[in-house]
Nucleic acid binder design. Structure first.
Lengths: 239, 239
DNA sequence: CGTCGGGTTGAGTCCATTCAACTTCGGTGG
DNA sequence: CCACCGAAGTTGAATGGACTCAACCCGACG
């Protein structure tokens, strides 16, 4: 059941059997959510952190005049709010973008891990650091990439992340977001989002039909996106 | 010498004398940098992390066609590359934006802290989590705020962060960035950056003359920015 | 068969960019 | 002393990208 978490943490360093057992012991409260349900609400102080076993979720903030911005996309194997373990108060909400299978890890148990398992602690810490690295890459994309390049970059990133947890097939993966939701990722209007997707399609680098994306020309997509996966820290080495 | 670090970490939770001593013991290699000097280079694998004792620095990425984007601004008391302790390879560069007084903490000593001082480890982890929270707020600003609001938000954030480390005086603080550098923060052209600064000035919410910013109307600035400091986790509580 | 959410397309407006000129100010050397 | 220079800031005009408003299509579903 925690296979995707092991794959996620294990991509950075070797995860021992004892550590897997510790993680399994910290998890409880497995549940299923429908698309659109709120996993965590802004302003609350959760006492456990939520792991996605399967499905898509997103962190978001809402502004006064109706605008919503997603600040991250979370896939299988991701702790959506591991940071709340130490930040305490949620400064943003988290919503399920597809039906989600999740489990919870009580903060008290995570604290015990920090006191008894330094290496596992470092791996969990690292997990939140990769989150930060992804955020930085998004900032660059929003600030200095063309919209087409930004979208290409997102596709590259998602493909690589989903590959780690074995959620791709060949060069395809399932992306359950509507164009309105994607617009809230890139910070665009829905209409323009549609046009940007259109240009990528017309360039014949991706095939994108009812939420299934097939990458037709990886090399070119990477070139358009200027994608360099270094920030995802996908090398297994002592941490 | 480490006063600003103690203030920074101590804003989130009580920092014991033993913990201060541990931190002091981890620091070495104090040095001074000129504005424009590179503190860390993209692609390298640093063996120590750098703390800013005084000055301004920024993380940045450069794109092929000349664009540069800052992904964070670092002030006194900030570890500019604490994340490199676990991420290992730098996926971005760090540059001094003013003359900087810095110190270094060897990664081997940080590792010892993770093995012997769980509470201090959590505080350092937390420090990187606040980094992430700031990144998220920047993403929201870039995606969904107007440019004026984005700049207002940046001013609010910097004022509050500098206040924590006692680098403000009344409602003023020193911001050594040129307009070109600020443009690389907001993701704008220099010309437009100038105009956005102009509108804030004309609104009489800030006085901004040769790198000194005075906030004339905090309430209104906060309203323009929709600034909510929750994400900075400035409450002292057990972590 | 009608409705509704999601996707697509067109037209006009506005915002941000580029290119360009010009100012201000501090520093430096004749 | 001031003449010159370069970096930073400011302003104008024209271009192009992204937005809004609007209409229309389509497939799912009651």
């Amino acid at each position: 059941m925690l296979e995707s978490l092991y794959l996620n943490l294990g991509q950075h360093d070797v995860l021992s059997e004892e550590e897997k057992a510790l993680l399994a012991g910290a998890m409880s409260l497995e549940r299923y959510l429908a698309a659109g349900e709120h996993i965590v609400t802004e302003g609350t102080r959760p006492i456990y952190s939520t792991l996605i076993i399967d499905g898509f979720a997103a962190r978001y903030k809402v502004l006064e005049h109706g605008g919503r911005q997603f600040t991250s996309l979370q896939v299988a194997g991701d702790f959506v709010d591991l940071h709340a373990f130490l930040l305490k108060t949620m400064d943003h909400g988290i919503v399920a973008l597809s039906p989600c299978h999740v489990a919870a890890a009580e903060h008290s148990k995570l604290k015990t891990i920090t006191e008894q398992a330094p290496h596992l602690t470092r791996l969990l810490w690292l997990n939140t650091l990769v989150d930060g690295a992804i955020h930085r890459e998004w900032i660059v994309a929003m600030g200095r990439r063309s919209k087409t390049s930004h979208l290409a970059h997102l596709i590259c990133e998602l493909f690589v992340r989903l590959q780690v947890v074995k959620k791709t097939r060949e060069m395809s993966f399932h992306l359950p977001l509507s164009q309105a939701e994607l617009a809230d990722v890139l910070g665009l209007s829905v209409v323009h989002m549609n046009r940007v997707i259109g240009t990528l399609r017309r360039m014949n680098v991706v095939n994108w039909t009812n939420h299934m994306i097939t990458i037709l020309d990886w090399e070119r997509l990477v070139a358009i996106a200027e994608f360099d996966p270094t920030y995802l820290s996908m090398t297994r080495e002592p941490r």
